[in-house]
Nucleic acid binder design. Structure first.
Length: 579
RNA sequence: CGGGGUGUAGUUCAGUUGGCUAGAACGCACGGUUUGGGACCGUGAGGUCGUCGGUUCAAGUCCGACCACCCCGACCA
């Protein structure tokens, strides 16, 4: 491609945005924003997308995925069957103008692929199989942010696998996990990507696995334990507090203190002149069984509802209404404690309360707080200390006692063992060898090319611009000719011969751009191999070759350029895959 | 959905206490000089000052509503 013919050139001046990925991609002429969370991929950017998708396609084919195209436009029918029509809040819903049909633009395809599978799955002989597609998806995000990291319209590869048994599902699940890892290796992100245990969400009680890539363009916090070699998403990370306050003190007499209108533990601690660690946060939840449970964590921590669900066994928890709190505790909201609660209220205590002496706790009496409270004297000693606190920086891994490394990261991929969830909704059964009906086990596997681009630009770049990995660069070679005499015709010959060899090349053939401008644009665009042909290089009998990552180039004789470039491309590819 | 910010040329921005024909830089076009790290001279084109309404002799400037974008938070397969 000749640069003069390329649609979408670099922008010298463009607003510096908070996120590096968006600034560099718009400056470089890769993307153009249409609205918040919706972008055009310009020709340069689209080449990158296509290459990433090819790598994904290749890896999915290797695990016997069969590519197909499911519709993006969905009828509400299937979504009503799983109940997600009402609960899935990022689903774009609308009505057909003519037929009054309820329709949706898809964010995910379980609702479509499961009934589809049902039409072709009857016998154990039909299983297993795995279907995937790479297509545009839509999510009605409340707040699209961080450039390409959170989009309303985005590309996604989603794959769904179908199995005769749980064992077969999990065997395949591991295969796909490895295939995913290969993708991250091939795009050059494996050094900063963590396979992270996460909640299965709506889908499953098991953990799902997220492929989290470190970077400021992410919004998740992941907790990595080096010695256990395990990483958790914050939503499920088990943790222990690094140190307990107020242990080993002599028990003082409990006292109720008047403290009206105090909001939050910080303010309370200040008012009572005690450490925040000495306070206790008590929350009341209503469960799906309509009973109320009381849960307590140390005041400087928050409750993680995901973890709380797991340890209590309740599936649905929501904070109890003001009225309910008043009825249960006898006090206004804000004064709840684990003292003197009605007997039918289950009490759950986080291990952050363990071995504390003389702590504060809500008095269940409007405007009052108890201080110098002690377990075993003022409160029954909890039978069990649980872990449902929201983990935070500084916490330690309960397994090995090592401090977690806490990393900000972007979820680039996510795989779920769906098991029977959707098969049940759509009655997806097959007949086994014995002639009896059995349920089909499912898995689903997603990965987002836009987010991969976002992660690469965010992390694989310097202050001059992007540094594309060889596997997904829009072009392998960026040829720069510096005008003087017949250099342009020599450059043209070189361009033609590289093209003929199938080497993807971008030639900056501008007559009116200065050398400096061309170099700076090349750095910004970030193509890995740069070839300069100029009076200076020709006086040394060749062209200059320089990698984007190198400071100094080397002179290559003209008739060897094609071979040297070919070798270089292979070398760069090998370097990526070897790691 | 809550809080904060911004909206003026293609882009990034300036525009004083409300005052005459709305500015700069970059980009673009033309002519010329340049070519190893964002060159230079000259000429020129380019504006519904986000939209609607209000106040005023007079509104880019003041007031109101709405819209859009950016940031923080809540939310998030």
């Amino acid at each position: 491609m000749k640069y003069t013919q390329l649609f979408g050139k670099t922008q010298k001046e463009s607003r510096e945005l908070e996120t590096k990925n968006m600034t560099l991609l718009s400056k470089g002429g890769f993307i153009n924003q249409h609205m918040a969370g919706v972008y055009t991929y310009l020709p340069l950017g689209y080449r990158v997308v296509a290459k990433i998708e090819d790598i994904i396609r290749d890896e999915m084919n290797k695990v016997n995925g069969q590519e197909l195209r499911l519709p993006s436009l969905h009828s509400a029918r299937n979504w009503k069957q799983t109940g997600r029509w009402d609960t899935h809040d990022t689903l774009f819903r609308f009505k057909s103008y003519y037929s009054k049909l309820d329709l949706a633009f898809c964010p995910t395809h379980e609702e479509l692929v499961t009934p589809l599978a049902k039409e072709y799955t009857f016998s154990y002989k039909d299983l297993p199989f795995s279907l995937y597609q790479i297509q545009t998806k839509f999510r009605d995000e409340k707040r699209p942010t961080l450039g390409l990291s959170r989009l309303r319209e985005f590309r996604m590869k989603d794959m769904y696998s179908f199995h005769a048994s749980r064992e077969d599902l999990y065997d395949y699940y591991e295969e796909v996990k490895q295939a995913y890892w290969n993708i991250f290796k091939r795009v050059g992100l494996d050094d900063i990507t963590y396979i992270t245990l996460a909640s299965g969400g709506d889908f499953t009680d098991e953990y799902s696995h997220e492929f989290q890539t470190a970077g400021r363009n992410g919004q998740d916090l992941i907790f990595h334990c080096k010695s256990c070699n395990i990483t958790y998403n914050r939503e499920v990370a088990p943790s222990k507090i690094p140190s307990q306050c107020c242990t080993g003190e002599k028990e003082k007499p409990m006292k109720a203190v008047l403290g009206k209108g105090i909001k939050g533990v910080e303010e309370l601690a200040k008012f009572l002149k005690i450490e925040v660690e000495r306070t206790t946060k008590t929350l009341l939840y209503e469960t799906e069984k309509e009973n109320v449970i009381a849960v307590a964590v140390r005041g400087d921590y928050n409750v993680n509802e995901e973890k709380l669900k797991k340890v209590t066994g309740y599936k649905e928890l929501k904070l109890a209404s003001k009225e309910r709190v008043k009825k249960v505790t006898g006090a206004e909201i804000g004064y709840a404690g684990i003292v003197d609660l009605p007997e039918d209220i289950e009490v759950y205590v986080d291990d952050s309360l363990k071995s504390r002496k003389n702590f504060e706790c809500g008095a269940n009496k409007t405007d009052y707080h108890n201080i110098n409270v002690n377990f075993g004297r003022d409160l029954p000693k909890p039978k069990k200390y649980l872990d449902f606190k929201l983990s935070r920086e500084g916490d330690i891994c309960p397994k090995c006692g090592q401090k977690y490394e806490v990393i900000r990261a972007l979820e680039n991929g996510n795989i779920f063992p769906l098991e029977k969830k959707f098969s049940k909704f759509f009655n997806l059964y097959y007949t086994d060898k014995e002639g009896t009906e059995q349920i089909v086990y499912m898995g689903c596997y997603g990965i987002g090319p836009d987010r991969i681009i976002s992660s690469i630009v965010e992390n694989k770049s310097d202050d001059k611009g992007i540094i594309w990995p060889i596997t997904i660069t829009p072009y392998y070679v960026h040829l720069i000719s510096l005008e003087d005499g017949d250099i342009k015709s020599k450059a043209n010959d070189l361009y033609d011969s590289l093209l003929k060899e199938g080497i993807e090349i971008l030639w900056d053939d501008r007559d009116d751009a200065s050398a400096g401008e061309k170099f700076n644009d090349a750095d910004l665009i970030g193509i890995p191999i740069r070839i300069i042909i100029s009076k200076r290089s020709l006086s040394r009998d060749g062209v200059e070759m320089k990698l984007r990552t190198e400071k100094e180039g080397e002179i290559i004789e003209l008739d060897k350029v094609v071979d040297v470039i070919k070798q270089k491309i292979e070398l760069l590819k090998k370097e990526l895959e070897k790691k």
